[in-house]
Amino acid sequence: MSESYLYIHLETVTNMILSYGISMNDFVDAFKQVPEHLLLLSDVDENEMIDPHTGFNVISGREDILRYLLNPKISRKKWIDYKHTLYLDEITPFEVSELLYLGHAYTHLSSPFYYKLANQYVYLELPNEMTKVYYRHLEDFHRVLSNTITRYFEAHNFQANFLFKRHVIHYVNLDNQTLNAIHELLVDGVLFDFTAAFRQDDQLIVPLFQLKHRFVPNDIAWSMTSAEKLGTLEYNREVQQWAVKLQA
């Protein structure tokens, strides 16, 4: 289903984004600043650096962190960033147990944002090909969302069916008005259906759906049986403008 469907659900209390189709590259390319330290919530690798106080693997240095994040051979990435190495020594046994639970159960017990760690993210790749990310600041997610949507439009390219294969379309980043309009829909979950995308004059149009059932990555036909069309996401390639148009 690569570049066919994009699903995003926002949980507003903890700024949690549950998604299918957002890549690590989309996420990394949205960084204003690469984290300086990561504490890995995955199974401990005895051959890698281990923090003696918490018992978790850690990675420090932005080059090593980017190498880890962008390594396609490492599956099921689970991590939390932190600001200062010295603050790890102040993590309590209870907080360690919370972090263990976060990595094991893929959900938080209390707040996923820790004062001592000053973390901006919690990143969890789930067993079902979906990803759960907690964002301290949702504007960081908006940059990720813009990266993802433009990538989908570029990958789909609207060319195979519209006979302009040699014409390259350059997409501008999504503007704040469009991002805010999408944001309002995400609380109930939104499926961007690129299999039903089409061109109408200069408009490139992708239908948006709200699902009545839980999104299932490997069974999209079942997921769509009771989907409600919300509207469309449109890109005017002539004036390079995005728009969300909702059903009347």
Results as ranks from 00 to 15, higher is better:
residue 145 L to R: 01
residue 216 V to M: 09
residue 214 R to Q: 12
residue 128 N to T: 06
residue 77 K to F: 08
residue 40 L to F: 05
residue 104 H to S: 14
residue 248 A to M: 10
residue 42 S to K: 07
residue 128 N to P: 06
residue 233 L to S: 08
residue 54 T to E: 08
residue 24 M to V: 15
residue 153 F to Q: 04
residue 185 L to C: 05
residue 136 R to P: 02
residue 158 F to I: 01
residue 193 D to H: 10
residue 182 I to V: 03
residue 66 L to C: 05
residue 217 P to E: 08
residue 76 R to F: 10
residue 126 L to I: 11
residue 166 R to Q: 14
residue 112 P to T: 03
residue 48 E to P: 02
residue 50 I to W: 00
residue 91 I to K: 00
residue 4 S to M: 13
residue 144 V to N: 08
residue 122 V to Q: 03
residue 141 F to S: 04
residue 178 T to G: 02
residue 95 E to N: 01
residue 115 Y to T: 15
residue 199 R to E: 15
residue 130 M to D: 03
residue 143 R to W: 07
residue 84 H to L: 06
residue 114 Y to Q: 01
residue 248 A to K: 15
residue 28 V to P: 06
residue 127 P to G: 09
residue 211 L to W: 01
residue 54 T to I: 09
residue 178 T to D: 01
residue 120 Q to W: 00
residue 189 G to E: 14
residue 121 Y to R: 09
residue 247 Q to Y: 05
residue 215 F to H: 02
residue 201 D to P: 00
residue 197 A to D: 14
residue 77 K to H: 05
residue 100 L to E: 13
residue 50 I to Q: 08
residue 205 I to C: 07
residue 242 W to E: 06
residue 86 L to M: 12
residue 224 M to V: 06
residue 152 Y to K: 09
residue 36 E to T: 12
residue 51 D to Y: 04
residue 214 R to K: 05
residue 25 N to H: 15
residue 126 L to Y: 08
residue 26 D to Q: 07
residue 143 R to I: 14
residue 175 D to G: 00
residue 208 L to K: 06
residue 21 G to M: 09
residue 160 A to H: 07
residue 154 E to L: 11
residue 177 Q to V: 07
residue 213 H to P: 01
residue 120 Q to K: 11
residue 150 T to S: 11
residue 240 Q to F: 13
residue 191 L to Y: 07
residue 232 T to S: 08
residue 159 Q to G: 14
residue 227 A to L: 03
residue 32 K to A: 15
residue 224 M to Y: 02
residue 241 Q to I: 15
residue 89 D to H: 11
residue 96 V to H: 00
residue 182 I to T: 02
residue 198 F to A: 10
residue 134 Y to H: 11
residue 138 L to G: 07
residue 79 W to N: 06
residue 219 D to K: 00
residue 81 D to N: 11
residue 212 K to Q: 14
residue 230 L to R: 06
residue 34 V to A: 13
residue 208 L to A: 11
residue 93 P to R: 00
residue 82 Y to S: 04
residue 75 S to P: 00
residue 42 S to F: 04
residue 35 P to T: 12
residue 77 K to L: 01
residue 40 L to H: 03
residue 133 V to L: 04
residue 158 F to W: 03
residue 237 R to E: 15
residue 114 Y to R: 01
residue 222 W to C: 05
residue 108 H to R: 08
residue 45 D to P: 04
